[in-house]
Design a protein around this nucleic acid. Structure first.
Lengths: 245, 245
DNA sequence: CGGTCGTTTGATTACGATCAAACGAAGTGG
DNA sequence: CCACTTCGTTTGATCGTAATCAAACGACCG
């Protein structure tokens, strides 16, 4: 079923950072049955209200979780990247409370909930790693609440850009202070509770102030210290060992 | 160390709903060592940035998690009630990214992280329940993001009141549609990203429209169907079996 | 009976939303 | 190869929700 032993590597790498694994844990994890699935930008993995029977591990590409309100407004509640798990909530509870959609073309490992649950039950270390990963996710959620609740547009965008820099660095996608950001300004708006027009103006201001520069789909942080300060950003909540210039 | 075998009952009751427990699990959980601790309204359990060595199970009373921004603004990111765990994140990662403070006088069971981790490692069912509880927490977080990000003040307050009704009903603190809400309007404001002045006016409007009534510290939902609709509230994300009139 | 805390009311301001339109780049088809 | 469409970014003008500032009021408490 698995195409290659190392396909799950990005997920394993992320989970291994959270708790010490034994070789037995590692090989048990690697033998988890899965099916590779490629998706295109914009494709839906699952929809709010759907009963979902399988989890997915994002191996490459980006996805986002969002919710559409009755009046049509959309809120993006999470951006997921390589190594992140998808549909855990919906898989384990059989109910999705948000939509999962691809930001870019992506490849993922589809894992049956039953298999994942069985593995977790047999291997306390693995279940613990999954639990800790969920705890980190909730720390990120809580930062986003703070972001949209109390920061002004300027700090809000700055904070998001800081978070992405650290998370991407953690998976080797941001070596210096440049990373590719596969989101349109409208998507940034939906992630920050702003409008795309205001995101545009805010990005212009961040550029004008020398905090960042950005072409179409990539961002460079020009002054990390200052961006960090204006965002009120403290990377501790991401619980990564890496640090930033 | 434990004063009474049944002290942890509220937490056990909540965790038991998430996955089937064996008697062995139950008794292992009950024999978890803990120390009862009483706190007063406004007391701090932990502060952002602190290294925290112990978890806590809230047995009665209310607590809230919040973060203070450099400019002094405050965002409440979570309200915790009887049966909820506190300081999981900070305990397991040794770093708190938010403050934990009491909303009311509260009593809690202080549990060493080591003991909890050991129990979780020995008892897959218990660790699974803890994991699922964390997943539900993150579902709540994600709803709050939607709340502050895309709902207007009216729907925002309405949504919060709906959520509280269901959560309180789940722990037997909201039998009909009345519950005591131990938050000042300023705290409601900090939870919804509004100002206390605007919360006041919004509550007045909700009352005027016949959606709720409220005296000093308690709320009655007068028209659940309409409140729910105006809030765009769907209780599914709370994953509770109970339903509402 | 002051003093503190929380709620309420009023007047004014501002940040970001909304509406509208032009522009540039990329992709499609004749 | 060039209209033509589509999508995303950019700019400008105006509007509105909620913030801010200020003060009075009521309840509880020592």
């Amino acid at each position: 079923m698995a195409l290659s032993e190392s396909s799950l590597a990005p997920v394993l790498a992320k989970l291994e950072q959270l708790v010490p694994w034994t070789d037995a844990d590692r090989s048990a994890f690697r033998s988890l049955p899965f099916m590779l699935r490629d998706m295109g930008a914009g494709d839906h993995l699952s929809r709010e209200g759907e009963a979902v029977g399988t989890c997915a591990a994002l191996l490459s590409g980006f996805a986002y979780l969002h919710r559409i309100l009755p009046d049509g407004a959309r809120q993006i509640v999470s951006v997921r990247m390589a190594g992140d798990l998808l549909n855990l909530q919906s898989g384990l509870f059989r109910t999705a409370s948000h939509n999962v959609q691809m930001l870019t073309p992506a490849t993922m490992a589809m894992i049956s909930v039953a298999d994942l649950a069985a593995l977790a039950a047999e291997r306390p270390v693995i279940q613990r790693a999954l639990w800790l990963a969920t705890l980190i996710d909730s720390a990120i959620f809580s930062q986003w609440i703070t972001n949209v609740g109390r920061r002004d547009a300027h700090a809000r965008i700055a904070h998001l850009l800081c978070e992405f820099a650290i998370r991407l660095r953690g998976i080797g996608l941001c070596d210096d202070l440049t990373y590719s950001l596969p989101m349109t300004q409208e998507q940034l708006a939906d992630a920050t509770g702003l409008t795309s027009v205001h995101v545009n103006r805010t990005l212009q201001r961040l550029r004008r102030e020398g905090l960042i520069s950005s072409d179409k789909r990539s961002v460079t942080i020009e002054d990390w210290a200052r961006l960090r300060r204006e965002a009120g950003f403290d990377a501790a909540y991401l619980h990564q060992s890496v640090t930033m210039g």
